[in-house]
Design a protein around this nucleic acid. Structure first.
Lengths: 196, 196
DNA sequence: CGCGGGTTTGATGATGCTCAAGCCCGGTGG
DNA sequence: CCACCGGGCTTGAGCATCATCAAACCCGCG
């Protein structure tokens, strides 16, 4: 059963008994998002957070020149939503779509808050998940402020060794923050990097 | 009493009775950090998170060229630490120091985790604080990926209208991610921005 | 006073973007 | 089976943004 992937993730941080697991399951909805379909679209409200069972989602913003900037890839075992919209219930500025057919469990903010009251351990779980997300987001910011494009690319290759193979390069470029053309030049060694 | 600033922050999200407030207070340590002194230094372990009662701290990383990149300013009412080091108890790569004489309450990770068990509402409080930090960090990342230096500066001025006055420009530069020289040119209007 | 840190200004240079062309390659329809 | 299409990738010339380095200035403070 696909719910097992989610239970596994929970058990890394907290212990839920059978009954609690079932109560949680009652608050979840399983959904398939087909390749290129949206989980969340600009100006919508993020009613739910998604747990990826299989496949891969990505979140990205579009700037005033029409360029996409990818904030997060969410392969199996990851949670994804626009936290801003999710907690404020204001319209989002992000898009989240599927890079391939993807299976997710959806948890609405309402249900999440109810679960926090019924099963305080879940509040702990999400506190920990959010702490870890914050660490990741901060590190990404540091990298963008400190590293050159070529260093960020090298970084990406070591951080996502699996993704790197079956991901179009234009998506990698949109993640590390360069144009596809420039990434191509980086890879061909035309642009010289001072260190590593 | 200075503890009131902290209680006020808590009461925005949760309700603590007298007894709970006192229990919390028992886990806190009040400390003065003088201007230019460090709250956290590279290679140390972030044993505590700090709540700023008065004054202002900042966190920053130093890249391989010796440049400082400021991640966060923490004026009155803000929490600050290196979340990575704080939750993993691994050595930090960041520095946190005081821009002026600053009064803080310190809460150790140990004490925090104990409090989460004794007063689950505090776990809720920090869950919310962390969610908000994540939103801020993500937005900062989007800005760095999407905006030009001049737009980021304009952004900073509207976001921190108070800080902007009594903050040396080199710190503003280290926050928005440009050299002090270039920020100076931005301000003098030498560099032209396409929009806004 | 004179020192020193912050700021300004200018000349030069590197990083990464823009635009345009060409290539590769898998898919599709005739 | 082939011809064509389109999307992704590459390559190159020119350009914008921002960094580097050096000099001068300003101004509070000892």
């Amino acid at each position: 059963m696909s719910i097992q992937k989610l239970i596994d993730s929970l058990q890394k941080h907290i212990n839920l008994n059978r009954q609690e697991q079932e109560m949680l399951t009652d608050f979840l909805v399983l959904k398939i998002i087909k390749k290129k379909q949206f989980f969340l679209h600009e100006a919508q409200i993020a009613k739910e957070v998604a747990f990826v069972v299989s496949g891969c989602l990505r979140s990205y913003s579009i700037d005033q020149n029409g360029f996409e900037h990818i904030l997060q890839f969410a392969p199996t075992g990851w949670w994804i939503t626009d936290m801003y919209s999710f907690i404020s219930q204001q319209p989002t500025h992000l898009n989240i779509d599927a890079l391939m057919d993807t299976e997710v469990y959806l948890l609405s903010r309402q249900n999440q808050l109810q679960l926090f009251d019924k099963i305080p351990k879940l509040e702990r779980y999400f506190r920990i998940i959010t702490e870890n997300s914050l660490v990741g987001s901060r590190q990404r910011l540091i990298d963008n402020l400190s590293l050159t494009a070529s260093q960020r690319y090298a970084n990406f290759c070591t951080t996502y060794p699996t993704l790197i193979h079956d991901l179009p390069q234009k998506l990698v470029a949109a993640y590390i923050g360069v144009t596809p053309e420039f990434l191509s030049k980086l890879r061909s060694g035309v642009a010289k990097s001072k260190k590593s």
